[in-house]
Amino acid sequence: MDIAAMSTGLSQLNFQSQASTLVLRKAMDQQQQQASDMLSLLQSVAVPSPEPLGQSIDISA
């Protein structure tokens, strides 16, 4: 294999790697935004309970 072909192959590999990284970064940013939106939604609908749950047990039958 000559040097020009090797150079072209390495250049293409580098470009593909950069493109894959950009796509992965975009997907991760979208996942982070969706998780943030979901947490905001859950916090907005949280209803406080009138009594502390799980602090007492009724053992009479």
Score class of each variant (00 low, 15 high):
residue 2 D to H: 05
residue 3 I to H: 08
residue 4 A to W: 06
residue 5 A to C: 11
residue 7 S to Q: 13
residue 8 T to F: 00
residue 9 G to H: 02
residue 10 L to F: 02
residue 10 L to T: 08
residue 12 Q to F: 00
residue 15 F to H: 13
residue 15 F to W: 08
residue 15 F to R: 10
residue 16 Q to S: 13
residue 16 Q to E: 13
residue 17 S to T: 13
residue 18 Q to F: 06
residue 20 S to K: 10
residue 20 S to F: 00
residue 21 T to V: 11
residue 22 L to Y: 10
residue 22 L to P: 06
residue 22 L to R: 14
residue 23 V to W: 01
residue 23 V to K: 12
residue 24 L to C: 09
residue 24 L to A: 14
residue 25 R to H: 15
residue 26 K to A: 15
residue 27 A to Y: 09
residue 27 A to W: 08
residue 27 A to L: 10
residue 27 A to K: 13
residue 28 M to P: 09
residue 28 M to E: 15
residue 29 D to A: 11
residue 29 D to T: 09
residue 30 Q to V: 08
residue 32 Q to W: 00
residue 32 Q to D: 14
residue 32 Q to M: 12
residue 33 Q to F: 03
residue 34 Q to T: 15
residue 35 A to W: 02
residue 35 A to S: 10
residue 35 A to L: 02
residue 36 S to M: 14
residue 37 D to V: 08
residue 38 M to L: 01
residue 39 L to S: 06
residue 40 S to Y: 03
residue 40 S to V: 10
residue 41 L to G: 02
residue 41 L to Y: 01
residue 43 Q to W: 00
residue 44 S to I: 00
residue 44 S to H: 05
residue 44 S to P: 05
residue 45 V to H: 01
residue 46 A to M: 00
residue 46 A to P: 00
residue 47 V to F: 02
residue 47 V to W: 01
residue 49 S to K: 04
residue 49 S to Q: 03
residue 50 P to C: 00
residue 51 E to P: 03
residue 51 E to C: 12
residue 52 P to N: 14
residue 52 P to H: 11
residue 53 L to H: 09
residue 53 L to D: 15
residue 54 G to H: 03
residue 55 Q to D: 05
residue 56 S to V: 01
residue 56 S to F: 04
residue 57 I to N: 03
residue 58 D to G: 04
residue 58 D to S: 10
residue 58 D to A: 09
residue 59 I to F: 06
residue 59 I to Q: 08
residue 60 S to W: 05
residue 61 A to V: 07
residue 61 A to R: 11
